[in-house]
Design a protein around this nucleic acid. Structure first.
Lengths: 146, 146
DNA sequence: CACATCAAGTTGTACTATACAACTAGAACG
DNA sequence: CGTTCTAGTTGTATAGTACAACTTGATGTG
C-alpha cells in the first residue's frame, strides 16, 4: 500500500472515531443545548434570522424535524417567530436576548474545550490542520465519506 | 485574534460541521449497517472476538445499548455468541462468515467514498492530514471538544 | 376571476439509538 | 454457606429523526 493509500485509511479511521465520539457526547455536552439546537441557533445568529425551511434545507433535515426543534427552542425562550408581512406562510426566526446569551455561553465553553485540546500544538500545525479540515469539508458531500 | 486563535476557531467550526454531517448521514450511510454497528463489527474483527462489556466500555455506551445492538446483529446473522467455558456469565462475540463479508463490503464502499473525496490531494497533504487527525483524537478526551 | 398547483409549517405516527433502573444468573471470596 | 461483585437482559422513558397527511396562504393559468 502506498503512503497515500495508507494515509487515506488513517483519515477514514480517525474521522470515523471522531464522528462516533461526537455522536456519543452530543447529548451530554451541554445539558441546555443539543448539538442540533446549537447549530440552529448559530445559524440564526450568523444570518440574523431565517426561515425554518432554510434551516431544513441547509442542514438536510426534514421540515417536520426542524418544526419541532424550533417549537422547543421557542418554548425555551431562545428564539422568537415573526410573521413575514410579505408572505403570511413564512415565519422568520430570530434569536431572543436569552438565546443570544446561551449561545455565547455554550460557544465559550466549547471554545475553551477545543483550546485545551489543542493547547500544545505549534501555531504552524494549527493553521495547516485548520486548512485541511476546511478543504475536506468543502469537498463534494453526500457520498457517505463521513 | 492571533493566527493560532483563529486556526482554533476554524478547527472547532469545521469539526462541528463534520460531526453534524456524520450524525445526519449515519443512518442513511449503508442501509445494512449503521455507524454504531459498523464500529462494533470492526472492533470484533480487529480483536478477533470480545465481550459485550468490553464494547460498552470502549465506546462509552451503556451495557443495555450494547446488549440490544448485539441482539440485532445476532438476529441478522452477522455475529454469534459463544459461551465462555471459563465463566458462564460471559458471552464471547465473534463475527460470522456473513458478518465478515458485510463488514468487508461496507469497508470497501466507505473507503472508495473517502478515496473519491481525497482524490485530488497531494500525497504530502494526505500524510500530514492523517497525522493531525491521529494527534487530535489521541488527545485527552471527554472534555466536550468534539 | 376561479380553480389548480405550489410552498411553508404543523401534526400524527413510527422507528432507532440511547440511558437508567431493576432484575437474573453466575463467580468470587470471606 | 451467604454476601458481594460482574455480565448481561429487560422494562421504561426520552431525543431525534423521517414520512405522510393535513392546513393555510401564495401564485399562476385558462
Amino acid at each position: 500500500m502506498s503512503a497515500a493509500e495508507s494515509a487515506v485509511e488513517t483519515i477514514q479511521r480517525e474521522m470515523t472515531i471522531f464522528a462516533r465520539r461526537a455522536r456519543a457526547s452530543a447529548g451530554r455536552m451541554h445539558p441546555e443545548l443539543s448539538l442540533v439546537s446549537y447549530t440552529l441557533l448559530g445559524h440564526l445568529e450568523e444570518r440574523d434570522g431565517c426561515r425554518a425551511t432554510d434551516l431544513a434545507g441547509h442542514y438536510a433535515l426534514d421540515k417536520s424535524t426542524v418544526s419541532r426543534q424550533v417549537a422547543a427552542l421557542e418554548r425555551a425562550g431562545l428564539i422568537e417567530r415573526r410573521l413575514d408581512p410579505e408572505d403570511h406562510r413564512v415565519q422568520v426566526l430570530h434569536l431572543t436576548e436569552a438565546g443570544r446569551e446561551i449561545l455565547a455561553q455554550v460557544t465559550r465553553s466549547r471554545r475553551s474545550a477545543f483550546r485545551e485540546r489543542l493547547a500544545n500544538w505549534p501555531e504552524e500545525d494549527l493553521v495547516r490542520f485548520a486548512a485541511y479540515l476546511e478543504r475536506y469539508n468543502a469537498g463534494p458531500g453526500g457520498t457517505g465519506a463521513v
